[in-house]
Simulated scan of single mutants.
Amino acid sequence: MTLYIGREASKLWKRVCAETTTELNLLADNWKYLLAGLVCQYIHGLAARGVHYIHRPGPTLQDLGFIFLPELGQDKAYISETLFSLIFLSFVLWTFHPFILKSKRIYTVLLWCRVLAFLVVSQFLRIITFYSTQLPGPNYHCREGSKLARLPHPQSILEVLLINFPRGVMYGCGDLIFSSHMIFTLVFVRTYQKYGTRRFIKQFAWMLAVIQSFLIVASRKHYTVDVVVAWYTVNLVVFFVDKKLPELPDRTSGNSPILLPLSMKDKDSWNKEENHKLLNGNSVDPADRRPRTQVNGKNLEDGNADTAMNGA
């Protein structure tokens, strides 16, 4: 038993080391995209902090969700945050499963580049929206009479730049349309829908997204319109941005030597070559896609390269 555990632990350690090496190589090529995505997360937080300074509390607007969904109350407002934290942490842990599990489909670095692209575009649209029209916040700390509903003018630029994290994020007001919680939730669920492998987890994730929507409204953290707009905006953003990005390599086949997605130029070149062979009645063999040596403007097979060079 001890020998078996030791052998499996050794295999796991080798797997972790091999995956770490692979991901570090990818990180060296893609760190700029990850850094840009993280900087945009800070800019989004800074914008949400800024709109709080111009927030003006007022009577809660009439809302269909407020009419049909009972109010949870301040003592139960943690329920929606707990569910969101569960979704967030579960997705983050799943993105690192290639380091441990033998069966893997994604590269962690490449996946996070894609996720951050979805988040950045969605958050950019969100910033434009909540700065265009400031609604009176429905949350308890944003209502009239609350000391947190208005922020005093900052004493220095440093006070704004530090955004009072995490308290400033938890008790923000004015950044309503559309829900930031739903941006993260829907981006994570859509990503797992495409790259995940467990069907029941996909169905469960969508169910959690729906429950999260109702809890946000029941907690009075957002108006119903904030959640509704998030549902169609984020899904459209993911749909169109995903089409513009190069497809991630699929690791399930296990026989693909290509680590990074092909460029569109490479894909077009391969497609033309395959179509040409099919028109000539030749089958397309994946093993035939090997580098060719170019001599005098002609592409030669590796085996004929030396002959051509000697005869030139």
Rank of each mutant, 00 (worst) to 15 (best):
W13D: 03
R15C: 10
R15K: 09
A18E: 09
T22N: 11
L27H: 14
L34C: 12
Y42T: 00
Y42C: 09
V51T: 07
H52D: 10
Y53T: 04
F68W: 15
P70Y: 03
Q74L: 00
K76M: 07
Y78A: 02
I79V: 01
T82F: 08
L86N: 00
L89Q: 00
L93F: 14
L111H: 02
L111N: 02
V120F: 15
S122A: 05
L125K: 10
R126M: 10
I128H: 11
I128P: 06
Q134D: 10
H141Y: 10
R143M: 02
K147A: 06
H153Q: 01
L158C: 12
L162G: 08
L162M: 08
M182G: 07
I183G: 11
F188Y: 06
R198F: 14
M207V: 14
A209K: 02
A218T: 05
H222Y: 12
H222G: 07
D226V: 01
V228L: 05
W231D: 00
F240Y: 14
F240K: 06
F240D: 00
P246M: 03
P246E: 09
E247I: 02
P249T: 03
P249E: 02
T252V: 01
L262M: 09
S263D: 08
M264D: 00
M264K: 04
D268P: 09
W270S: 09
H276W: 11
A287K: 11
R289P: 11
D302Y: 15
G303I: 15
T307Q: 12
